[in-house]
Design a protein around this nucleic acid. Structure first.
Lengths: 143, 143
DNA sequence: TATTGTTATACTCTATAACTATA
DNA sequence: TATAGTTATAGAGTATAACAATA
């Protein structure tokens, strides 16, 4: 059964390959002004609109205190803004400012362009495999 | 041309998917005693046998000084050992100790088991796609 | 009292700079 | 002088702990 062996090999190689991949993406994202977490935060806020510190902390797997510090820094730079919840004086919603939305789009474009350039070097059938692979990885990540 | 659109979508989704994936793997690897870089170092040393600080720094994309600190810490914990080069008194080769090799195997097993459990939930053809996908991602990462 | 967020402090990883030793 | 490594110091990111405000 060489097929099983192939899967085993692929599984073993997936680890370093994904690791290398992530490093590349990180390099592209880091305009050296934005940390990886900050990029991720902007992505979430762009999708959802606004989130509390606690929810963002859960989403990015960091402690609420750390997320608070990060958001304070981003607020300082004009990337996000506070939108107090009138219904609950405790929690504060954070959303992207105009500048934040603009920055987010630039980062996304930079990453996307890098990937598009890489994908362009693949054949037609390879690109189809890529589509299937992404779907597959998404299923893997949700266990 | 919906095919082109599919590729575009896949490319766009590859970013967050890989990010999430990496986070999972990191969580599995971090026995909370070992940093991500330490895990990577042990992987390299297991493959190659022994490497200099400079080469490891290049491989892991950190500064030689930082790598020196990291290796000193790992040496302290008995994971790696120095093997001075008799031909060049300047450079020092680092290799895994018995304990380091053992630790490396445990980490690899933990990560591998996690992936195998995830892969087991895929169909036969999906597993074949995975094999192709890994090959593809490897090609993408080398531009 | 339980929850949300803030402030103070410390730890880990990595970077920059200055230094030592070998080639 | 060029290269390999070490030591000292600083920075970014995140953690833990103690605190304030609202529910």
């Amino acid at each position: 059964m060489s097929r099983k062996a192939d899967v085993e090999t692929a599984v073993a190689e997936l680890l370093p390959v994904v690791g290398q991949f992530q490093r590349r993406l990180r390099a592209v994202s880091n305009t050296r002004e934005l940390s990886w977490t900050q990029v991720a935060i902007m992505g979430r806020l762009e999708q959802v609109g606004a989130m509390t510190i606690a929810d963002l902390a859960r989403a990015e797997a960091v402690k609420p205190q750390s997320m608070g510090m990060t958001l304070a820094a981003m607020e300082e730079e004009g990337l996000v803004e506070r939108r107090p919840d009138p219904n609950d004086g405790r929690q504060i919603l954070f959303g992207l400012t105009e500048e934040g939305l603009d920055t987010r789009k630039q980062v996304k474009l930079a990453k996307h362009e890098w990937l598009v350039a890489a994908v362009a070097k693949l054949s037609q059938s390879e690109q189809e495999t890529l589509v299937a692979a992404v779907d597959l990885l998404r299923r893997l990540e949700s266990l």
